[in-house]
Amino acid sequence: MTATQLYPGAPAIQTIDVRRVYKSRSGFTFGGQKAGKSVTALDGVSLTIQKGELFGLLGRNGAGKTTLIKILTTLLSPTSGEAYVDGLDVNKYVIPIRKKIAMVSGGEQSGYGILTVREQLWMFAQFYGVTSQAAHKKIDQLLEAVGLGDQANQKVYALSTGMRQRMNLCRALVSDPEILFLDEPTVGLDVEASRIVRDYVRSWMQEKPGRTVLLTTHYMFEADELCDRVAIINHGQIVAQGETDDLKKGLQEHARFQFELSEWAPAFEEELKQSRGVVSAQTMNKKGKVSVQIALENEEYITSAMQTISSAGGHVLTLRRIEPTLEEVFMRLVGNSDEDKAAGEDEV
């Protein structure tokens, strides 16, 4: 697809081979890359995010997450490639795109400090053409929902970081956007504030079908908890994308289980290792709690493994399957690519 177009059923977000190169007069480092006169922040990013998805873009600092969001929110032009928001080319349909989107960035103290929370939100509602009456109603709803009802008439400069970030979320939502860009929205927030932001994003998505969120984060648990699909970006390139469960399954070569046993017996480990379908077994005795972690060729061998333990005189108290975490997926993909890169650089 090359033409700029607006068509029914267009993905909420689509990028095709997007590159972004920053040019600088003096050398600096960007995301770990040594820069001379130019730094490649995005290097051929292709993504498709359907309407109604909560999509996570994961990556370390400087991986290119924010650059992609800037391009999609019309703050920055791509050096090459194509980027579409709701089927609209970001280079050509700037104002129509802006009517559909909103953005919240984390880790900053943004806000007109002299205004009250309500005034600031009202002003942004005006920018989006919302009538005053509708805006005030919406503001009340949003502030209550994020626990800022009592702060409505407080000056922005007097808000804590967490409150300010929640206000910024309200600022983005007061215009009822179709597509919401959240750029590390919980960075620097305490547990409670982060929880409120995450909970509200989830409920906002559920309120109306078709709402779309692109969330960038380097908190893997956050992406795991919120996102339908994720992409992992490293050095400006997408190294993996898909549903979180699929990515985890892709990482897991063997089915892994953990038993907790009533008592310690040295024979368990050896017996298990020789049992059919067991790839590895490791016994741990920690603070009087005996546990065995096993890896099986596939999960069907769990029954025979349990029989082996029973016949060796063991009594299983608990059994749980060990699932790989998104963090493990991330570390495997990003860690390896970094090692490869480092090795490559060493070779050069």
């Binding site: 929110t73 019309t74 703050l75 104002i95 129509p96 802006r98 009517k99 989107i101 953005m103 960035s105 900053e108 103290q109 943004s110 806000g111 007109y112 400090g113 942004f124 920018f127 989006y128 053409g129 600022r171």
Partner: peptide, 18 residues
Amino acid sequence: EYAMLKYVYIAPHRFITF
């Protein structure tokens, strides 16, 4: 100072109007 320019800029108006 206010770190608000980007939010005002991406609102659906010409920045020059603002």
